[in-house]
C-alpha cells in the first residue's frame, strides 16, 4: 500500500527503489507498468496518463513502452529462448524478420545466443535472467523495470546481471530497480528512493562506490 508518494523519474535515469519487505517497492513498479491501478492519484509514463487507459490500452502501453524483469524470471517454459524473446515483439505486431534479428542481436549482446534454441528449463538462473532482460528490451521500451532482478541469483551471477543493467543505462535506457540490497544500490545505482510502509522516506543521489565493475 502506497501513501502520498510523489515521484518523478527523468529519461535516462537509473533509479533504485529500496525498502524492507512490504514497503511497497514492487507496487511502485506494478503501478508504473500499468499492472496495477492506484486508488487515487495520477501516474504518467512517457507522456501517457495511465489512469485514463482501459485494460486493453494499458496492455498496448505495456507492450510498447515498458520492459519488465522479474525476480523469478517468469519465462514461458514451453517456448524456446528465442521464442520467449520474440513473443514480446510479436505482440506489438512487428515484422518477423527484423524482430528475429533484433532478438538474436540482444541474445548475442547478453552472451546467450548459443542458447537460442534451448528451453528455459535447461538454463542456469543467470542465463534465464538474461533471457528475461532480452525479452524486456526487444521492443525498445521507454522504461525498464527490474523487480529484485538478482534476488534469485547467486552473488556472482547477480553482479553480472547488474553490470548489464548499468551498461544499458549508460546507453540511455531509463531503469527503475526495486531491491532491498543496499550494497547493490551503492555499487550500481545513481538515485535512491527509500520507502517504508508505503511512504517515501528518502530520495537521494547514490554515489557509486566504484566503477570498476562496469564493463
Amino acid at each position: 500500500m502506497l501513501d502520498q508518494l510523489n515521484l518523478e523519474v527523468a529519461q535516462g535515469e537509473f533509479v533504485a527503489v529500496m525498502g524492507p519487505s512490504g514497503s511497497g517497492k514492487s507496487t511502485v513498479l506494478n503501478l508504473v507498468a500499468g499492472l496495477d491501478r492506484p486508488t487515487t492519484g495520477i501516474i504518467t509514463v512517457d507522456g501517457s496518463a495511465l489512469s485514463e487507459l482501459s485494460e486493453a490500452d494499458l496492455a498496448r502501453f505495456r507492450r510498447s513502452r515498458i520492459g519488465f524483469v522479474f525476480q523469478f524470471f517468469h519465462l514461458l517454459n514451453n517456448l524456446s529462448v528465442l521464442d520467449n524473446v520474440l513473443i514480446a515483439a510479436q505482440l506489438t505486431g512487428a515484422q518477423e524478420a527484423p524482430s528475429r534479428a533484433r532478438a538474436l542481436g540482444l541474445l548475442d549482446e547478453l552472451g546467450i545466443v548459443t542458447k537460442a534454441r534451448e528451453y528455459p528449463a535447461k538454463l542456469s538462473g543467470g542465463e534465464r535472467q538474461r533471457v528475461a532482460i532480452a525479452r524486456a528490451l526487444v521492443n525498445r521500451p521507454a522504461v525498464l523495470l527490474a523487480d529484485e532482478p538478482t534476488g534469485a541469483l547467486d552473488s556472482h551471477t547477480g553482479e553480472q546481471v547488474m553490470e548489464l543493467l548499468v551498461a544499458l543505462n549508460q546507453s540511455g535506457q531509463t531503469i527503475l530497480l526495486a531491491t532491498h540490497d543496499l550494497e547493490l544500490v551503492r555499487r550500481y545505482s545513481r538515485r535512491l528512493i527509500n520507502l517504508r510502509d508505503g511512504k517515501l522516506t528518502g530520495d537521494s543521489q547514490a554515489p557509486r562506490q566504484e566503477e570498476a565493475g562496469t564493463p
Binding site: 496492455a59 507492450r63 505482440l91
Partner: peptide, 15 residues
Amino acid sequence: RDIAILKALGMTPGQ
C-alpha cells in the same frame, strides 16, 4: 502463470 506473464508483456484481455 503463463497467461499472467503474457499479460505483463502486453497481451490484451481480448488477445
